[in-house]
């Protein structure tokens, strides 16, 4: 069920350049189930900035009623978010949308992420491993300074890193790594920039895949038609990224 709650900041730290890890506690965390869902955060009690910010859930700890997000502080809203300290309260709406279907993977899954699309793949990797699915992680970042959670992913399975400037791992994009890897997996899951999602879809037209999309949002719950994309089903078919997604099967969304 969707809730709005003032959640308590438990922990906030900068884990890579401009990348922050933020843990919140409250009943809302107990509503979280699927990896890939997101929350809509009001970063200030004033109307400046006005709109909520959509951020994915990166890991869930039901026992402690906590969840963690990882985000890049770049604009006004995320900049203010980065100033929150343990003990502060934060207005959160969520959990929102439909996440990655973990039950679709059979034996081995590829998890392909780029930049701030990497965070939701962490909870996904945890849940897939809990179901005894082998996970391979292919993660792309701008540079060495922007890399995060490499060790945490390694604990869960083979992990390959690409950086655009080559300062860490393979130089280039995740697709450069994918070209070198065997296609012996049954399902892939991906989150990242639209260009990356497109490239991944093209790389594996025969495989079952699930992609998480981004759109600018208003309401975040399906009421305002801000986040609409057309689909391949018909000329008049469309989806709302916020409430029908953000995760969709490969080949459906025209982005």
């Amino acid at each position: 069920m969707i809730k709005q709650e003032r959640m308590q900041v438990i922990k906030q730290q900068e884990i890579a350049k401009h990348i922050f890890e933020l843990t919140l506690q409250g009943e809302l965390a107990n509503e979280m189930a699927e990896p890939g869902q997101f929350v809509h955060i009001r970063v200030a009690d004033s109307f400046e900035p006005l709109l909520r910010r959509p951020i994915s859930v990166a890991s869930i700890d039901l026992e402690a009623s906590q969840f963690t997000m990882i985000y890049r502080a770049e604009g006004r809203g995320t900049g203010l978010l980065a100033e929150k300290k343990p003990g502060d309260m934060l207005d959160v709406l969520g959990p929102l949308g439909h996440g990655f279907p973990v039950e679709e993977a059979q034996k081995k899954a590829y998890l392909i992420g780029g930049g701030i699309g990497v965070p939701p793949l962490y909870e996904l990797a945890k849940q897939l491993n809990a179901r005894s699915i082998e996970t391979v992680h292919i993660l792309g970042f701008e540079s060495k300074q922007a890399v995060f959670y490499e060790d945490k992913f390694r604990e869960l399975g083979d992990t390959h890193i690409a950086t655009v400037d080559g300062s860490h791992g393979t130089q280039g994009f995740v697709t450069h790594i994918l070209n070198e890897l065997p296609s012996d997996f049954d399902t892939y899951y991906s989150c990242g920039p639209t260009a990356m999602l497109e490239a991944v879809q093209w790389a594996y037209p025969q495989k079952k895949g699930f992609l998480s999309y981004e759109q600018r949002m208003g309401c975040g719950i399906g009421a305002c038609f801000a986040c609409v994309c057309r689909t391949t089903k018909s000329e008049t078919d469309y989806i709302k990224v916020c409430s029908d997604g953000p995760v969709f099967p490969a080949g459906v969304v025209i982005s």
Partner: peptide, 9 residues
């Protein structure tokens, strides 16, 4: 899209 953009207040 984009169909929305935030502005001052």
């Amino acid at each position: 899209t984009p169909r929305v953009a935030e502005t001052a207040s």
